[in-house]
């Protein structure tokens, strides 16, 4: 099913919650989103950055995967 704004909000809450004690992590995530919107980075570029940022947080990576277009997926190591 197509994801809705509520799904995005709930995912963003999850990210904020996870990094409650490290607000700079969420800021960095926002920077990645800004660069994507301004087309400084493309989809593979976003994947690369998010993969590094959320390294060690498989639940956040799996959540992020749901927003990726078909054919893209970040592998999660558990």
């Amino acid at each position: 099913r197509p994801l809705k704004v509520e799904d995005a909000l709930s995912y963003l809450d999850q990210v904020k919650l996870q990094f409650g004690s490290q607000p700079q992590m969420y800021s960095e995530f926002l920077d990645i989103m800004k660069e994507f919107k301004s087309q400084c980075i493309d989809t593979p570029g976003v994947i690369n950055r998010v993969c590094q940022l959320f390294n060690g947080h498989p639940d956040l990576i799996m959540g992020f995967n749901t927003f990726l277009p078909p054919g893209y997926k970040i592998d999660v190591q558990i």
């Binding site: 995005a8 909000l9 926002l30």
Partner: peptide, 19 residues
């Protein structure tokens, strides 16, 4: 753009930050 749901996530992230 080829990644509409990712664009949606970016839009929501950036607009919710402004408000």
């Amino acid at each position: 753009m080829a990644a509409p749901q990712l664009v949606m996530l970016a839009n929501v992230a950036l607009t919710s930050e402004v408000s």
